[in-house]
Structure formats: structure tokens, C-alpha cells
């Protein structure tokens, strides 16, 4: 899910960036530093939408660098346990399948795929119901529920399930 949030960060700026464009320099450094990062608490920082406040700078002893406390608004994207989302399948194997919802990676184990869906190997590995009416393969769109998340420095990884009511394939590329 996407959120709008106000975050704060202490930005260190070298004195050569001071002058008329100090604010611009500060903002572009902030964008470079923050956008694309992710944390467990906030998820991915997708984009900075505005600067709320830039505090008074504090000169660091010995280096000449100045630290500015910057408050900024940004759009973050974070998956939650219990959230329902629509993801695109990226890989299918006998262990389950991987899917992607924006920057978030999701794995759905074969234990969390309905029991009536069987793994079929071949050129395009897939999970298919016995009557062949429903098929999950690469590029399929599935609606799934997040049941666990793990965050590391650069990505968020989730465990999902489609073994529940109203979950499963919404759009099959082969059928389209």
C-alpha cells in the first residue's frame, strides 16, 4: 500500500555547495540519498513530494561540513501482513511461484496454492487445475494476500498466499 509520510533526515553538506543555490543543492542531495531506499518501518521511499522545513545548519567540528535537519514529505510503498494486492507472476517452479507488485517481491509457496492446482513442468512451467480452467504461469496476474514480510537494505520480500476465498488468478495471459 502507498502512504504519504513526513520524514526527517540530517543532511551533511560541503561548504562548496553553499551560496544562492544552497537549498537546491540540499534538496537534490536529499533526493539522491533517499529515493529508492527502503526500511522496515516505512518501506520503499518512492519519491519526495515536498520539503516541509529546513532547519538551521550546524557546523561539524573539524570538518567544515554543515548538518541541516530537513523535514520532507514523501510517498512510500510498504506491504503489510494481511494486505491484499495484485501481483504479476515472474517465475514459476515446483516450490511455488514468485510475483512482483511494484518494487515488492512476493513468493507463494506451493503449500499456499489451492490443493486442486498441480504443478506442470515444461517450456512454461505452470500451476493448473485438474480441469484446466485456471492456470498460473509467468505474466499471470494474481490477487494474493501477504502473510509475512522481510526487509533488507535494498528490497522487501514477502510471503503470500492464494489459498483463500476470492484470491487467485485475475488475468491469464494465455487466455487473453
Amino acid at each position: 500500500m502507498f502512504f504519504h509520510i513526513v520524514l526527517e533526515r540530517n543532511m551533511q553538506l560541503h561548504p562548496r555547495h553553499f551560496g544562492r543555490h544552497l537549498r537546491d543543492n540540499l534538496v537534490s542531495k536529499l533526493m539522491k540519498d533517499v529515493e529508492g531506499t527502503c526500511s522496515g518501518r516505512h518501506g520503499f521511499v518512492v519519491a519526495i513530494t515536498g520539503i516541509e522545513d529546513i532547519g538551521k545548519g550546524l557546523i561539524r567540528d573539524g570538518t567544515g561540513f554543515v548538518t541541516f535537519p530537513v523535514k520532507y514529505q514523501c510517498v512510500v510503498c510498504r506491504p503489510f501482513k494481511g494486505e491484499i494486492l495484485e501481483a504479476v507472476v515472474t517465475m514459476v517452479n515446483k516450490m511455488g511461484f514468485f510475483a512482483e507488485a511494484g518494487p515488492v517481491q512476493i513468493f507463494v509457496s506451493n503449500h499456499l496454492i489451492p490443493d486442486d492446482m498441480e504443478f506442470q513442468s515444461g517450456d512454461t512451467p505452470n500451476y493448473t487445475t485438474s480441469d484446466g480452467s485456471v492456470k498460473i504461469q509467468k505474466e499471470s496476474e494474481v490477487r494474493l494476500k501477504i502473510i509475512g514480510t522481510r526487509v533488507d537494505a535494498t528490497e522487501i520480500f514477502c510471503i503470500g498466499t492464494i489459498k483463500d476465498d476470492f484470491l487467485g488468478v485475475i488475468n491469464d495471459p494465455a487466455g487473453a
Binding site: E35, C38, V46, G102
Partner: peptide
């Protein structure tokens, strides 16, 4: 110097 990260494109697409 200002470039949108890959996660922006992905999030936007999503």
C-alpha cells in the same frame, strides 16, 4: 545528477 530510481518506475507502473 537527479535520476529517478528503478523502484520509482516499478512503483509507478504498479
Amino acid at each position: 545528477a537527479i535520476k529517478l530510481p528503478a523502484s520509482f518506475d516499478k512503483a509507478f507502473e504498479y
